Amino acid sequence: MTTNQSHESLQSPPSHQSQSILLAGAGGVLGRHITRALTEAGHKVTGLGRGRRNDLQADLMNRDALLRAVEGHHFDTVIHAATALSKPPMRHRDMHATNALRTDGTAHLIEAARATGARRFLAESMVFGYGYGDHGDHVITEADPFGPRGRSPELEGHIAAMRVKERLTFGATDMAGIALRFGLFYGPGGTDGLLPMLRKRQLPVPADHGRVLPWIELTDAARAVVAAVERERPGQAYNIADRTPMGFGAHVRCVAEEFGLPRPMTVPLWLMRPMSYAHTVMSTTLRVSTARAERELGWSPAHPTVHDGLAAMRAAEGLT
């Protein structure tokens, strides 16, 4: 899939200009960070979601209700950061509702964005769209194929959903489409859920044996969204991750160490197979380059390593 389509007629407002932004998924962990970062940057954010705390209440899967919710509103930018996940997915079926949000939900939200006169559509994407499995030492850039066919029906379901979400984003030629391909999230509101399990030693992890994954601290992820809103180049995708990939087991052990919790038990990777999706993630080796985001968006991670991000989180929570 190509992401360098021409949108020359769609001019972005200057970076200092306040924008009216509709954020789907504002009530989620990432959404709350995005809302705060955009607001602090001087933009007006309207939250969209099913919960009562949202400014506009609607389910992305209900097209008619969504169009009714946005009727009469105008937005400069619409952001799709909605997820159906309330906790880390363990089995493949845990991803099915989020996959639907990436396909049907995206199509509905683009229609709603068009109805509000939006000229920019920004999609939360994921580095796993490059494919699950062992990518070896190759450092993946945005020029690498995105959305290759999955090696099993379940993996194809996950990858196809990410492929379709980006295809719809870039196919909306009357809007400037941008996709941010995030690494795995951690940080305030995300890592907190691991702490009780680590405290009770209820979170065994495998040895990584050289496997690494891209990670991104949540406030850094939100800063990337602000950068994309203010400085995007239409039709582009950007990898967003920190500078130091880390294995899943090493990440969890780092959390335990940083927060003074018992070291998690190390188990063979095959023992994780009943948790089919988690096993797939833990089996993956993936490195990405963020050079394009740094060059074109002027973004770089404030927390270049997981150690840095966790130390900042611990300090902010007064746990030093």
Rank of each mutant, 00 (worst) to 15 (best):
T83E: 04
S86W: 13
D76N: 10
D76V: 07
R93C: 06
T77W: 07
P89V: 06
A69M: 13
M90F: 08
N62H: 08
D76Q: 14
D94I: 04
S86G: 15
A69V: 14
H73E: 13
H80P: 00
L60I: 04
A69D: 14
K87A: 15
E71Q: 13
D59V: 04
R91Q: 11
V70K: 01
K87I: 15
T77D: 09
S86R: 15
L66P: 04
R68N: 06
D59F: 00
M61G: 12
L67A: 01
E71F: 14
R68I: 07
D94H: 09
N62L: 14
I79S: 05
A84R: 03
A82D: 06
A81G: 02
V78S: 06
E71C: 14
G72F: 03
L60N: 06
A81V: 11
L60W: 04
F75V: 11
F75Q: 08
A81R: 01
R63H: 14
H92G: 03
R93Q: 11
R63E: 05
V70H: 01
T83Q: 01
G72Q: 12
A81C: 06
L85H: 04
D64V: 13
H80R: 09
L85D: 09
V78P: 00
M61I: 11
V70P: 00
I79T: 04
H73D: 04
A82R: 07
P89F: 01
D76I: 11
A84E: 11
L67W: 04
L67T: 01
D76C: 10
P88L: 12
P88W: 00
K87Y: 13
R91M: 14
S86V: 15
I79Q: 01
R93H: 13
G72A: 10
P89A: 07
A69C: 11
L60V: 11
H73W: 05
D64W: 09
V70W: 00
S86Q: 15
H92D: 12
M61H: 13
G72I: 03
F75G: 09
L67V: 02
D94Q: 10
R68H: 13
I79M: 02
D94V: 03
H92W: 14
H73I: 02
H74Q: 14
V78M: 02
A81D: 01
D64M: 08
R68T: 14
A65W: 00
N62Q: 08
A69E: 07
A84S: 10
D64G: 04
A84D: 11
K87Q: 12
V70S: 05
I79F: 00
L67R: 06
T83A: 08
L67I: 01
H80I: 07
A82L: 06
R93A: 11
P89I: 08
D59I: 03
L60D: 03
S86Y: 12
N62I: 02
R91E: 12
N62Y: 15
M61F: 10
A65E: 00
P88I: 01
H92T: 09
E71A: 15
R68C: 14
V78F: 03
P88D: 07
L66Q: 07
M90G: 03
H92I: 12
A84M: 12
E71N: 13
A84L: 07
V78R: 00
P88G: 04
V70C: 02
R91T: 14
I79A: 03
F75Y: 14
M61N: 05
S86P: 15
L85Y: 05
A82P: 04
T77V: 15
E71K: 15
S86C: 12
N62T: 03
D59L: 04
H73K: 09
P89S: 08
H74S: 10
L85T: 06
